[in-house]
Amino acid sequence: MESASQGRLKAEVPAVTATAATTHIALKPRTATMEALEDITYGSIAGVVGKYIEYPFDTVKVRLQSQPDHLPLRYTGPLDCFRQSLRADGFLGLYRGISAPLFGAAVETSSLFFFERIGREAIYASGFHPRDSGLTLPQLWFTGAFSGAFTSFLLTPVELVKCKIQVPESEAAGARAAARLRPIPVVKDIFRHHGLVGFWHGQVGTLIRESGGCAAWFGSKETATKLLRDWNEKRSLARKPSTPAELARMRTDPLPLWQQALAGATAGMSYNFLFFPADTIKSRMQTTPLGQSTKGQSFGNEARALWRQAGLGGFYRGCGVTVLRSAPSSAFIFMVYDGLKKYFPMQ
């Protein structure tokens, strides 16, 4: 499977070099519409696959992040949260409210790939970089930040509903019993209590997490891919001399599957670790009980309250389990997306 950056360059070349077992296949010129449709369709599928893998860990993360200031901590750590959640609701309870996140994952991942393409086109259109050559790594980090910033505005309402389902009001208030909430009633309650603007409660946290995190997500993926290609090339040259054609093919052929997984896992861990504090603050804001006034609950005020309550460690509550689940999830997202683009290109 090829990397996402390689897939985006197909429109700019008349043919694709196949492996030794296949022939050269001439491709029709790719239109911007087909490329965008691939981003939306294949990004949605990849996002859904990744969400099924990570959702139980995400539920634990949100419950750890949203523990109230005025009560003793209910969970001593991720394993304790897993145990209590399994005891209370069983394994399926960890998938509570997954319908909204599945929709959100489809929106998020397809939007990320779509807006990342728009960011690339903006760089090419500016004239700062020739269209017939690949972008530099700093430019790829920029297109990731560009993508995350725009995606955050689509994602905040979906995450708001998800967080309120994962941490029901009774649990957020410290009670043991947890009401089973559904997306549609939660949406209606948010609108009734806070109006349309209420769906973007926590937007600042999502914006920081997505713009910074997606810069790391795309940038780390491409950086790891480049390092692995350089390593493969050095190993090959150490074994035997290579012709210029062989070296060129080595730089464009898909990485071995395990290296693709490694690059994708690196991207996921970078995304989640670097901007985790912003996600913690966002989760605390978005798990405020429905009907409770959010006046004065700004990103800065919530950050100061958390600092007073728990210090620096409070901002990283649930970070370990989040980084752990992000490795396989992100690896699968990139592998599914790149695989679909390679084997099922839209003409």
Rank of each mutant, 00 (worst) to 15 (best):
L135G: 01
A267V: 08
D338E: 12
S5H: 11
G144I: 05
R251A: 09
F218S: 01
R325A: 14
L262H: 02
A105E: 04
T59L: 14
A149Q: 03
A310W: 13
S330N: 12
G174N: 02
S329D: 04
K221P: 09
P68E: 09
L227Q: 07
G296I: 13
S293H: 01
F275R: 05
A224K: 06
A278Y: 05
G219T: 11
M335W: 07
T136N: 05
A215K: 02
H129F: 06
D132C: 05
A46V: 07
A173S: 11
A177L: 12
L237G: 00
D80M: 10
L312I: 13
R325Q: 13
I184T: 14
F146W: 01
A331D: 04
G213P: 08
S330T: 05
R63G: 09
A267E: 10
N272Y: 00
L227G: 03
P138S: 04
E246P: 04
G127Y: 02
A46L: 08
L237K: 15
G291C: 06
E38I: 04
G296F: 13
A261G: 00
F150M: 03
R239K: 12
Q297A: 14
S236C: 08
R120H: 11
C163N: 03
S152W: 07
K234L: 15
E159G: 07
Q67T: 12
Y55G: 07
I190A: 00
F57E: 05
F115W: 03
F199S: 03
L306C: 13
P168S: 00
L135V: 02
W141Y: 14
R229P: 12
A100V: 12
G93I: 01
E116L: 15
A106D: 02
F114M: 07
F334I: 08
L324C: 07
K234N: 15
P101R: 09
F218G: 00
K342E: 12
Y75N: 13
V13I: 10
P254E: 02
S66K: 02
Q139L: 09
G144Q: 02
T19C: 05
Q292V: 11
T322K: 07
T243V: 10
T59R: 10
G339E: 05
G300Y: 15
R308C: 12
F276T: 02
S170V: 01
A263T: 06
R308Y: 15
L154M: 04
N301F: 03
L154S: 01
T266L: 14
R96P: 00
T33C: 09
C163R: 04
Y42D: 09
K164L: 05
E54R: 13
K10S: 08
W307G: 10
S152K: 00
T294M: 14
Q347F: 01
C214V: 13
D58R: 03
K234W: 15
S152F: 02
K221R: 13
A15D: 04
R83F: 08
Q292D: 15
W141I: 13
P78M: 13
K162F: 06
